[in-house]
Design a protein around this nucleic acid. Sequence first.
DNA 1: ATGAAAGCGCTAACAA
DNA 2: TTGTTAGCGCTTTCAT
Lengths: 333, 333
Amino acid sequence: MAGVSPTVVSRVLHNKATAIRVSEQTAERVRQAASDLGYRFNILARQFRQQRTMAIGVLHGLSDSRPNFGGDSSYFADLMDGVIDAAFALDYTVAFCPKLLGDSPAMAMADGRFDGLVWYGSTPTEENRKLVMESTVPIVLLHNPSEVFGNRFPSVICDNTQGVDLAVEHLAGLGHRRIAVAVSREDFFNEARTRIECFFKAMRVRGLRSGPSDVIEFGLDLREIHQFFEAGPAHTAVFAVTDTIASRFLDIAPEHGFAVPTDLSVVGFDSTRMCEALTPRLTSVHQPLALMGRRAVEMLNQSIEKGATDPVTLVIPCSFDIRGSTSIATRGI
Amino acid sequence: MAGVSPTVVSRVLHNKATAIRVSEQTAERVRQAASDLGYRFNILARQFRQQRTMAIGVLHGLSDSRPNFGGDSSYFADLMDGVIDAAFALDYTVAFCPKLLGDSPAMAMADGRFDGLVWYGSTPTEENRKLVMESTVPIVLLHNPSEVFGNRFPSVICDNTQGVDLAVEHLAGLGHRRIAVAVSREDFFNEARTRIECFFKAMRVRGLRSGPSDVIEFGLDLREIHQFFEAGPAHTAVFAVTDTIASRFLDIAPEHGFAVPTDLSVVGFDSTRMCEALTPRLTSVHQPLALMGRRAVEMLNQSIEKGATDPVTLVIPCSFDIRGSTSIATRGI
DNA sequence: ATGAAAGCGCTAACAA
DNA sequence: TTGTTAGCGCTTTCAT
């Protein structure tokens, strides 16, 4: 319609007119025609041509077969807010893809659908590990330190050491000297394990006694929690490695005549929205999830743009949200 | 490597072997070679070829420039859970795309990036309206009855009439006879307006008096809410058209010596997670958001598969979550 | 300053 | 049962 070749149209519509010299007059004619025709270039053709999609895939390496935005724990939601934030700022589309979670993730990872991947998960299964390791596109890990994948990819994690220390510092400051640490068997993933180690260390640093016998590890029937209360615990506080775990104690304590926080202080980890809905509201270590999501995408963009980057592990500090589930130690002082 | 033509490979790898006859022997040879080579077909090429992406775009037609999963109102998160659920079941990728929200949505809508779109929004701006109307791909609307877009697209909405009726029924059952209805100026969108009409009707049906003077419409400074309390209201209950609006009343009532629910019952709409975190917990009409998201995608799939469908408006019933913000009327009985 | 031509990897129509 | 060929729409050399 403008009486020019496709080449020229392409150049004009990409504003490369100056760089690749097209007369302003022709350019204008082309633009006019494009507008008249309601022309839009076919992005599929372009992606195909350039082998670049400007899309980031979010892999959900958890046992759940799909991301869960709702539910109590706002965890994934907060993370995704950050991911989307950064992705949009860099002009990436963010996609959740069934095949990544379903039958054949490997395929989707290698088929050029995404320029890069955010792998979000805590316990990589052996199969997941293999898939990730074989990826042909850049990946950034969330919630797994780089070494879990042989230092092949950059990663973003929260500062568990510092986060746990905040919790112990808070409890110690309230006069608690015997503190238990709680973890569910199902959640006994890398990070949970790390937090327990951090806990021991934070206690040690303050001259407080703690060891394996202070770990309450419970299964689905919560039996060990009941046993903890029945035994008439010496502990005056519990540090739970996740909010959900903490909520179990809030539920069960009253059944055994323990009031929280009067008889037992409880601290959680993640400070998800759940904390506000519990009674009493749960004091918890706060991971800056949105920030972590943002950083992950920014690092991913680096990898995509510059090719392989150092497999940096970005460690982001936690903060501490004091709510109603902790108070001054009343026993064993 | 298998010594066959690309055609045969294509056929084998799509399991069309039976339909388009390839000998099992050759097929096996091809599969073996593919596996040895670690061959994956390039999805970009395929999408390009077929002009089909198996991706659904989510348009966020709100004033916010991007979807917000976190925050108090789990609203979008719940909706998306449903969308993703259905999309994955149908093998669609779900994408959030910056360009849809940023500079040039029209482009993204027409460029073949998506097989279909879910348009999620309450107040279409004139510009948004135009964009949607000009879409070249199937769209399903969420939260807007089809007529808002000239009956061009199917849509999914909750049953506002029935939902509001549940609220009024509940309050009337508690003996409330003078009920106010609250809306914020900023939220005064289609659906809010609808709910107010529904409210009038629900009152009328029960022989209860209500009219424009019972509408509390307030701006950002919340002045009108304060005035409501200062005037010593005859109303013993407030029906708020969203949870956020209801939360204002919960916040402000105590400042004026009104206890909720003793002196004033408050009902919200949406029953978002916020309801659990408020004091007292907020009684609210529940929209089955996840279900609505699911239905929207299913309808979209229909449109994509069968071409244009009837612009059905799917109306989904609400339920009612009774929490702590409502009780028996103590005044004006 | 503009155009011709090739080719990205795949699939479908047609031919053998 | 298998292969040949053409072409999806775009961008990018390279030539003019």
